[in-house]
Design a protein around this nucleic acid. Structure first.
Lengths: 243, 243
DNA sequence: AGACTTTTAAATGTCAGACAAATAAAATCG
DNA sequence: CGATTTTATTTGTCTGACATTTAAAAGTCT
């Protein structure tokens, strides 16, 4: 692991990259202890604050965790699905909100991915997941629900659908796609009529999942995509030419 | 933005979280300049190194960028697809390699996601993407290719397929799934016979994409998934009971 | 006045040294 | 032998300083 003190990039970034490479390549295995900050600063010929900045960069990516005290130090972290979820969601959310990705593009991606889960979910969904979906449908039907709460419930419903596939890797990959849509969905005003339409589609999906009818789930998700895009389109239309 | 100096968590982590929230919530917009390190340390009542550690955490997530010199400072970064890609890939790779996700689980997720792209890709693939796929197929047929190079070319082929959907959000989401499989795939020994089988499937996929025949693409991806899992199964079998 | 050069100021990057706090292991004592 | 105290190690934080980069201000010459 070497760094070049002449390069224009920050030393702390170079050191972080060197350690990151060692972790990704498997040179440093899970739970391995890194040298102490003092040793690292000796090894890289930099000061301790610089080493610390590098370590904090890695900690921000959940690549390492630190422990104080004797026999403490920085350890290669076994990254868990929970950590990965939250990172993915933050990144995806910012990506969508800051890069002016069109609603249609995001929506298309989301439903394409969800439909990928449909066959597996129809096959494997647990009673618990079905119950979650029914509960969210019930919540969505409550009168006086704010648009934000409606969206949040919608996200919960779809997460249950995705989790139904029983594949943690799929759940992880889709968490970003589904959750990141929420801010975009929040811009939509859901009328009583549109809520009813969405709820009906949700009921159809839940019923089809219970009946293990993958084809209907797929078709209904396609309908839901079309309906959602239509709603967004109407909102955009109304905004452009307000009554 | 407030922090609690009594909490057992690191101050730099708290400060990073406070700023992160401000960015995610939209309180700090893209290209907005954060207060200088000196001002932040005043504001949070901590020292400058502590503030710097917090800023480095955010920089590691591409949430901010820093610029030196007068009128420099830390700016809210517009996160690009490139940044998001690489972060996703590192996270996904580590997640798969460190969490002992079974090959079957990862493989199932990957092909489910790829099949989600198939219809869109059949519809929109550009001549350029078709050419990339043909070129990779050609490379895969070269004799004397190492297993690693074969896998790398396989990844390139599948990325072209995914990019064919013409949806950057899909490409971003799938980059992790496809690339993260590479280390797992590298554990497989590809015989001349198995390479030929895979290449034939790749040809079928490329042909079907060119003919905009989504159904064949989907079916062939399903075949490829079955074949890949069979290969991995054989390798595992042979390792358990070596001849 | 205008274009070029020099100076200055502000900001991040880096360093050195110190102390605080946590923690596990070693040493001590009943 | 068990409980307690001491000690050493390591991260967390602070202070203060200097180096480097960069843009803007000041100055200078034509």
């Amino acid at each position: 692991m070497k760094i070049d003190s002449q390069k224009p990039t920050d030393l702390s970034a170079q050191i972080a990259q060197a350690i990151r490479s060692a972790i990704v390549s498997g040179e440093l295995i899970v739970n391995a202890r890194l040298p102490s900050e003092a040793e690292l600063s000796e090894q890289f010929q930099v000061s301790r604050p610089t080493v610390r900045e590098a370590l904090k960069r890695l900690a921000a990516q959940s690549l390492i965790r630190t422990q104080r005290g004797a026999s403490g130090g920085a350890f290669v972290n076994r990254i868990g699905f929970e950590d990965a979820y939250s990172q993915q969601i933050t990144t995806s959310t910012l990506l969508l909100s800051m890069n002016s990705v069109s609603f249609d593009t995001a929506c298309e991606a989301r439903y394409a991915l969800e439909r990928a889960c449909a066959p597996l979910s129809a096959q494997r969904r647990t009673p618990d997941q079905l119950a979650t979906m029914r509960a969210e449908i019930f919540r969505q039907a409550q009168p006086g629900l704010t648009d934000e709460a409606f969206c949040a419930s919608d996200v919960a419903f779809h997460r249950a659908l995705v989790d139904g596939a029983g594949n943690p890797v799929l759940s992880y990959q889709l968490a970003g796609a589904v959750e990141a849509m929420q801010p975009l969905m929040n811009m939509i005003t859901f009328t009583a009529r549109s809520r009813e339409a969405i709820i009906n589609l949700h009921v159809t999906i839940a019923d089809a999942l219970e009946a293990q009818d993958a084809a209907t789930v797929d078709a209904t998700l396609a309908d839901l995509e079309i309906y959602t895009r239509q709603l967004a389109h109407d909102v955009a239309e109304r905004k452009r030419k307000p009554a």
